[in-house]
């Protein structure tokens, strides 16, 4: 099983949108995929299920040592796509160091979903590489970093790289799969310049070729509780995430079994 964390130092860069739609792309490819919301804001659940605030989830699992992951899994209409909501627990810790104290429990979480024969597990994380997010990175195989295509996003890159460097000291097998440009607005020169600047700044292999454009469709999809690709108007966006999945699969080592 491949465990991927979608994370960033900065908030509001499109982590949840990326997580949902990438997980959907993996599920559509036939991989048994679990999307886990580790952001205590519960954005995944709020995006995809109307009952999310009543669901037990990841943080309940962290707090309850006898809880099983199986109790938390929410199926979707796509049989290969399931999710775990953030839940109602309060284990989220502000300002803690590179490890929050939950890493053993999160390892247990991963062990259980591996036993359930999932092919891919995607963790949507809270902004900032500390606390529970650091623990998630401590057990993940790979990390992808969405970076908004705006000047402020580019300026935050050094902090993000430093934090990932520290995380790789904790988890040496963590593969940095790359930075993906999000919220790209082709009609805005500052957005394009930021995208170019980031590509000029980082090694080629660190920046994904695929870019996620800013699109009102994400807001509409969220309002309906759907991945964008499910919507009738979503074919073009679906193709972008399919392209991203393929690009990602070329980078993930060992490869995800077909």
């Amino acid at each position: 099983m491949t465990t991927l964390a979608i994370t960033s130092q900065k908030g509001g860069v499109g982590k949840t949108t990326l997580s949902i739609n990438l997980a959907y792309a993996f599920a559509r490819s036939g991989r048994k995929t679990l999307l886990v919301d580790t952001d205590p804001q519960g954005s995944v659940g709020l995006s995809l299920t109307r009952q999310s605030r009543h669901l037990s989830g990841f943080y309940d699992f962290l707090e309850n040592p006898v809880m099983n992951v199986g109790e938390l899994i929410v199926p979707t209409r796509l049989p290969t796509f399931s999710l775990v909501a953030a839940g109602r627990g309060s284990a989220y810790e502000f300002g803690s160091g590179p490890i929050s104290g939950n890493i053993h429990r999160i390892r247990g979480f991963v062990s259980q979903i591996r036993a359930m024969k999932y092919d891919v597990c995607i963790f949507d994380t809270a902004a900032g590489l500390f606390g529970v997010t650091a623990d998630v990175l401590g057990v993940s195989n790979g990390v992808m970093v969405p970076q908004q295509s705006e000047p402020l996003g580019v300026r935050s890159v050094p902090k993000m790289l430093e934090a990932l460097t520290r995380m790789r000291a904790v988890n040496p097998s963590l593969q940095v799969l790359g930075v993906i440009l999000t919220m790209v607005k082709k009609e805005l020169s500052e957005s394009l310049e930021s995208a170019q600047a980031l590509r000029g700044l980082l090694p080629d292999e660190m920046v994904m070729q695929t870019e996620i454009p800013r699109n009102d469709l994400y807001v509409q999809a969220s309002a309906r509780g759907l991945p964008v690709g499910v919507m009738a108007e979503g074919a073009k966006t679906l193709a972008i995430f399919e392209e991203l999945r393929l690009e990602l699969e070329q980078r993930i080592n060992p490869p995800i079994p077909s």
Binding site: V157, P158, R168, V176, G200, P203, M206
Partner: peptide
């Protein structure tokens, strides 16, 4: 980029990762 950060430092960090 260059007004806000050190490109050499960033590249070095990225290559390390």
């Amino acid at each position: 980029v260059s007004q806000w950060l050190d490109p050499d430092e960033v590249r070095s960090l990225a290559e390390g990762l």
